[in-house]
């Protein structure tokens, strides 16, 4: 067992209490599934921590006719159950229900998944990118809303003085899908992830995770598909365009080399479009 350490640990019951601990330099502890492995990565655990799991406002999913609000402390398992069957969120549900393994999904939170800075293979970022989610932060100056793309790009700096509190989603999608390629059928980190969504104007949104260090929208492919409108609903044509407009730099990693991650994107787009066509919104 670790030698006895005088570590400060606050289980905040309000956002204000959590921010007060943050001001004192406490690191945020979500489910712990990423941080608890820090010592194995050669990183010391923080000396001061603030846990968010006792803040009721961060532990629920609110579903309204035109929007959804997800608390940062909601687990993957709870998110998957809450949105199961909600039209347009098929991709987000698949991301929440297939990440890692069942035990981890019961513990790992939405906020933790978005804030694990070195976790390139996280499932929720690409799924939330195609939802065009808005991330709500509590900063030292008060609440702040930021688009998910900007959040992911700047989160290193943003999180130095903020806590992710909620994720806001519009209900403007008719269908979505989340395709992941682990090396084994389940339980592995995915080599590559492609999330796709179709909005009410039949425009296709596509995001890629795990290929580069941070998930991002595939705007080159989105534009090519918009210019060739039939391709959004034709798996072969979409895969052809994906091959032509592949502008990713694959990252080398333990599970796979960069060239392979890049190479599998076109087949994943093909699977993704086929999955979109099977959803209730497009079938």
């Amino acid at each position: 067992m670790a030698p006895s350490v005088e570590r400060s640990f606050t289980a905040a019951s309000t956002i204000e209490e959590a921010m007060a601990a943050r001001r004192q330099g406490a690191a945020v502890l979500a489910g712990g599934t990423w941080m608890m492995r820090d010592p194995r990565r050669g990183v010391d655990l923080p000396e001061a921590l603030v846990a968010l799991h006792r803040i009721p406002a961060l532990s629920k999913v609110e579903i309204a006719p035109d929007h959804v609000v997800i608390g940062a402390a909601v687990s993957h398992a709870v998110l998957g159950r809450a949105l199961h069957g909600a039209v347009g969120f098929e991709g987000l549900v698949a991301a929440a229900e297939n990440a890692a393994n069942p035990g981890i999904r019961r513990v790992a939170t939405v906020g933790g998944n978005l804030c694990a800075l070195d976790f390139a293979a996280a499932d929720l970022p690409p799924a939330l990118l195609v939802c065009e989610a808005t991330v709500e932060l509590e900063t030292f100056e008060g609440p702040k809303l930021i688009g998910i793309s900007d959040f992911l790009k700047d989160r290193h700096a943003l999180l130095a003085e903020a806590i992710v509190t909620r994720i806001h989603l519009r209900r403007d999608l008719v269908a979505s899908a989340h395709i992941r390629l682990p090396l084994r059928k389940a339980g592995d980190y995915p080599v590559a992830i492609v999330s796709l969504a179709v909005d009410k104007d039949k425009r296709c949104r596509i995001a890629v995770g795990s290929v580069e260090p941070v998930a991002r929208r595939w705007t080159a492919l989105e534009q090519a598909m918009a210019a060739d409108s039939a391709s959004a609903f034709d798996p072969e044509r979409a895969a052809g365009l994906a091959l032509e407009h592949n502008d990713f730099q694959g990252r080398d990693g333990k599970e796979a080399e960069g060239w392979y991650r890049r190479q599998v994107l076109a087949p994943l787009v093909k699977r993704g479009v086929a999955a979109l066509l099977k959803t209730g919104g497009l079938a």
């Binding site: 640990f9 712990g32 608890m36 035990g103 513990v107």
Partner: peptide, 9 residues
């Protein structure tokens, strides 16, 4: 998994 559950939680 109890290996990833800090006792504080």
């Amino acid at each position: 998994p109890s290996c990833l559950k800090p006792i504080g939680l």
